[in-house]
Design a protein around this nucleic acid. Structure first.
Length: 643
RNA sequence: GCUGCAGUAGCUCAGCGGCAGAGCACUUCCUUGGUAAGGAAGAGGCCAUGGGUUCAAGCCCCAUCUGCAGCUCCA
């Protein structure tokens, strides 16, 4: 009873008797690169026995699957070590994740930083021996018996058995530590390089992610096949920290958040306000150019409007408590749509007025739980770059084109590339199937017509709307929530949004919600990290500083500054009695894009020595050239060379 | 909200029961210099807040507030 194994190159080999996957692969790959295998596409142990026809593929170092197997195995090694340090400790789960792995424990005391070092030390010890990972399959009763002191494991076993009462329970043992685990694992700890491992942090995590259940201690770590890969990862973490908008925000004096003012409420300092103002100015210009009209709506509104919109019912948890005004309940505005709808509803609308595009940089207030607040990225008061388009069904597709064009244009200016998603009907939804089909179909058609590459996020829509979501990729390749465009199937009904069509009859209006930047807070916070604080010239708080070499050039520096200011540039003269080197250092730390040195030589020649943040000393140029160079760079909104 | 950790000068941090500290920033003075730190002096504090323990608390204990990491959540 022989069988055939098919390899990725298409060759087939006949086997007379059952063999371990590693044996079947021997001679086909370098043993040192072999981490695991795929049997019929499923990642498996190398020791897994093959006894029937199948396809077999090696999983080699360098592949994502190999890294997962490695990390999962390292999490077991860590768990073994932690239990060695805390006999009687309970283990929960310990999977590989995108950036490493973690393991959740219930331990007699909280872990400390020192414990992490100790864990790492003991792991290195374990890895010095070469212990094999052994898989066994147990009958349910036996598995229960084996894990009788491990309540989390028992719960997992029960769950497995709920699906299949006769399931074999697989366990893995290495170095005397046995864990309930589906696998697969590396064949032996000798595959794991101690110098590729780092235990990173401790944090709380709910058992099974359920906030009503026990809080466990989660230990995060990461693992790579080489010290170089680990270093690259740690360097990246350091770079992320270096770019942290909270840190840069403080260093560059852009914004602050104060206990006395309240958590989640941002104060924009003058420098940060320049960035925001320039972006808002650009935003308004761009919208007006594209046929939007700007509006303003108040920060508080009678509760009645939110009753009607349904927000009060669905999202009251995120709305601030009502305030009593002349016996009426008012609420801080949590979203702009009711205001815009009210403007649309103000009188009967004719089809001739459509599409009506109402845009507002509207400030809203939402209650966010204290634990989720994060610098400018997650706050309780923020300004959305919001717009609502009221149009007819016939106009919808054209409007979506316009929105997508706007998204592209604005993302390009900031240097973000985007991934596009079409989020379709979720399980819970309102509205009719016909409406959903129309709305989703129109979005899909618009994307297809433009030839944009997009993925479908099946069921990812909101309960009242399908949407197009853009995820922005920043300079570090991280994803950020980007522009979004929703076709609302709810509010037009709730508010009975109609217009008089060409036949003189009422027709239901279609409503589109869309935002490009999201919120000024989150967007600018993200931009700080995207640019690492070195902003493109057009939004730089200070665009240029003129540094006189001695006080004899103060007047000349002033003249140069005036020439720049006349062109609307944000320029300062650094007139402090410090050396040039000192000023350059400080201005560089402040990431000023242009520093112009004005000494005796420059004054005689009517020039300035140009120094840019990204390229350093560029030599002298006439004042007029400097001015026009900066003016042109502002006008074109050029991106910094380095990002 | 939950678990853990933290809160000392504007910033970054040291001090861990016994006189409140450093560097940078700030002010003044000297220095007028050529592409990432010239020198000196000075000023700056209810050690997050409220209780408690102690002869004595920045330090130990409790509570609250705020921040950080993660979890959960995010129309």
């Amino acid at each position: 009873m022989s069988f055939f194994v098919t390899f990725p190159d298409g060759t087939r080999a006949e086997f007379e008797r059952a063999a371990a996957a590693s044996e079947a692969l021997s001679g086909r790959v370098r043993p040192a690169d072999l981490v695991a295998c795929k049997i019929d596409g499923r990642v498996s142990d190398l020791a897994r026995r093959i006894d029937s026809d199948c396809s077999l593929e090696p999983v080699l170092k360098g592949s994502a699957e190999a890294l997962d197997v490695l990390r999962h195995s390292v999490s077991h090694v860590m768990a073994g070590v932690v239990l060695g340090m805390f006999p009687g400790g309970k283990t929960a789960i310990g999977p590989a994740i995108q950036t490493g792995f973690y393991y959740d424990f219930d331990l007699p005391r909280p872990l400390t930083e020192d414990d992490l070092a100790e864990i790492e030390r003991r792991m290195a010890e374990v890895l010095r021996t070469s212990a094999s990972f052994r898989r066994e399959e147990l009958a349910p009763a036996k598995a229960r018996e084996m894990f009788r002191d491990q309540p989390f494991k028992i719960e997992l076993i029960d769950d497995i058995l709920k699906d299949d009462p006769k399931a074999a329970i697989s366990i893995y043992t290495h170095d005397g530590f046995t864990d309930l685990c589906a696998g697969p694992h590396v064949a032996s700890t000798s595959v794991i390089p101690a110098e590729g491992i780092k235990i990173l942090s401790i944090a709380g995590a709910y058992w099974r992610g359920d906030e009503r259940r026990q809080m466990l201690q989660r230990v995060y770590g990461t693992a790579f096949f080489s010290a170089d890969d680990l270093k690259a990862h740690l360097d990246r973490l350091a770079e992320i920290e270096r770019r942290d908008h909270r840190k840069l925000g403080k260093e560059l004096d852009l914004f602050s958040i104060h206990q006395d003012l309240g958590p989640g409420l941002v104060l924009w300092h003058p420098a940060g306000a320049v960035i925001r103002r320039e972006i808002e100015r650009f935003w308004v210009d761009e919208h007006v150019r594209r046929g939007y009209e700007t509006v303003y709506s108040p920060h508080i509104a009678s509760e009645r409007i939110y009753e009607r919109s349904g927000h009060l019912e669905a999202y009251s948890d995120m709305m601030y408590a009502p305030m009593d005004i002349d016996g009426q309940k008012y609420r801080a505005k949590p979203m702009n749509c009711p205001g815009h709808i009210t403007i649309f509803q103000n009188r009967r609308r004719s089809y001739r007025e459509l599409p009506m595009r109402l845009a507002e940089l509207g400030t809203v207030y939402r209650y966010e739980r204290s634990g989720v607040l994060h610098g400018m990225l997650r706050v309780r008061g923020f300004t959305q770059d919001d717009a609502h388009i009221f149009c007819s069904r016939a106009q919808l597709r054209q409007e979506i084109y316009g929105v997508l064009d706007l998204f592209d244009a604005m993302m390009k200016v900031f240097g973000y590339s985007c991934k596009v998603y079409l989020a379709t009907r979720p399980e819970k939804y309102i509205g009719t199937d016909e409406e959903w089909d129309f709305a989703t179909g129109t979005l899909r058609k618009a994307l297809e017509d433009r030839g944009s590459a997009f993925e479908v996020d099946e069921g990812g829509g909101v309960f009242y709307a399908p949407k197009i979501d853009l995820k922005m990729l920043d300079a570090l390749g991280r994803e950020w929530q980007g522009p979004t465009c929703q076709v609302d199937l709810n509010l037009p009904v709730r508010f009975d949004l109609n217009f008089v069509n060409a036949e003189g009859r009422d027709e239901r209006a279609v409503m589109v919600h869309r935002t490009v930047l999201g919120s000024m807070e989150r967007f600018v916070g993200g931009l700080i990290e995207h640019y690492a604080g070195a902003f493109p010239l057009w939004i730089s708080p200070v665009q240029a500083v003129i540094v006189p070499v001695t006080k004899r050039q103060l007047a000349y520096a002033g003249e140069a500054a005036s020439a720049m200011k006349a062109k609307g540039l944000r320029v300062k003269v650094d007139d402090r009695s410090e050396k040039v080197g000192f000023k350059i250092r400080e201005l560089t730390i402040q990431k000023v894009p242009y520093v112009f040195v004005a000494g005796e030589r420059e004054e005689k020649a009517g020039t300035l020595s140009v120094r840019t943040y990204h390229r350093g000393d560029e030599g002298a140029a006439p004042i007029g050239d400097c001015v026009s160079r900066l003016a042109a760079e502002v006008e074109s909104k050029s991106l910094p060379q380095s990002s």
